[in-house]
């Protein structure tokens, strides 16, 4: 992914000079994310779907819901798995073949943000304890890469799961049978939203573009829930953060996250 990206020296100087004046190359405030648009239901055949466009970064998330045999130690809970892949159409540096470490990290951070927030009440997704549970699979496909895939995948996933329909199943002879045409709402408890910040030369900016991403020294992704609590974190990059910076970052994440959450909520309402 962007790790192989070379930012030209003039652009790098320009970004750094502007940061000193409190400005960014695209005119945004330090704590201002790019324009986010979310369309849900873009894959009508999936049980849930969303296309999130964050600036020029674009992700399509699709949710498949199907009965699964539970893991032996969690027979009283449904199953939730999020994945992410960077499609080779998304960027010249994207590769086919087995996922490279940055892509694995993207997938795991996306999964963690959704899972650890307890977004879905998994206890409500049991068909028969220890025998059959409902599995919710949310797969993210990055179709255009202009930096900060973490947040784009977070928003696409949350919007897709939030708007999905859970088919009804009946247990017949120990096996789940789908009842055609009947659905229930997903058991949503909270809407997790991540906010990624890049540290460039001691300045911290929200939602870095691919150019800011290419020159940043470190980054942090902080996921918060509807109550304004922090639910997942991921620090990356080859520099560190001070304690004060981290406190500030968490505050920023909660503040920006609440704006993003409204956009996700509206995407569902405008579809109805």
């Amino acid at each position: 992914m962007s790790d192989g990206l070379i930012i030209d020296q003039l652009k790098k100087n320009q970004i750094l000079d502007l940061l000193k004046e409190g400005k960014r190359v695209d005119g945004r405030q330090f704590d201002e994310p790019r324009k986010l648009t979310i369309d849900i239901g873009v894959i009508p055949k999936a049980e849930g779907s969303a296309r999130a466009r964050l600036g020029d970064t674009e992700v399509v998330a699709g949710v498949k819901v199907q009965p699964e045999r539970p893991f032996p130690d969690t027979g009283d809970k449904g199953m939730l798995i999020c994945t992410a892949e960077i499609l080779p159409i998304a960027h010249p540096s994207a590769e086919t073949g087995p996922p490279q470490p940055p892509v694995v990290e993207l997938a795991r951070v996306t999964d963690r943000g959704i899972r650890e927030s307890g977004m879905l009440d998994m206890k409500q997704l049991v068909l028969e304890k220890d025998k059959s549970v409902i599995g919710v699979f949310c797969d993210n496909a990055v179709t255009d890469h202009d930096g900060n895939l973490f947040d784009a995948c977070s928003y696409a996933s949350t919007a897709a799961i939030n708007s999905c329909k859970i088919p009804k199943y009946e247990m017949q002879d120990d096996a789940p049978v789908k009842i055609e045409g009947e659905f229930t709402e997903p058991p949503i408890t909270t809407l997790p939203v991540s906010v990624t910040m890049a540290k460039i030369d001691d300045y911290i900016v929200v939602d870095p573009t691919i150019e800011e991403w290419g020159i940043m020294d470190a980054r942090i992704t902080i996921t918060s829930n509807s109550d304004g609590n922090v639910v997942a974190l991921q620090k990356g990059g080859s520099d560190g953060f001070t304690q004060e910076e981290l406190i500030k970052c968490a505050e920023t994440s909660v503040k920006v996250g609440s704006q993003i959450r409204e956009i996700i909520k509206q995407s569902k309402q405008s579809d109805n």
Partner: peptide
């Protein structure tokens, strides 16, 4: 050329 299906593109989820 690479033809590839998204996991959510078909009825039952496809292995990526």
């Amino acid at each position: 050329c690479r033809y590839h299906m998204a996991p959510f593109s078909v009825g039952e989820r496809k292995n990526p």
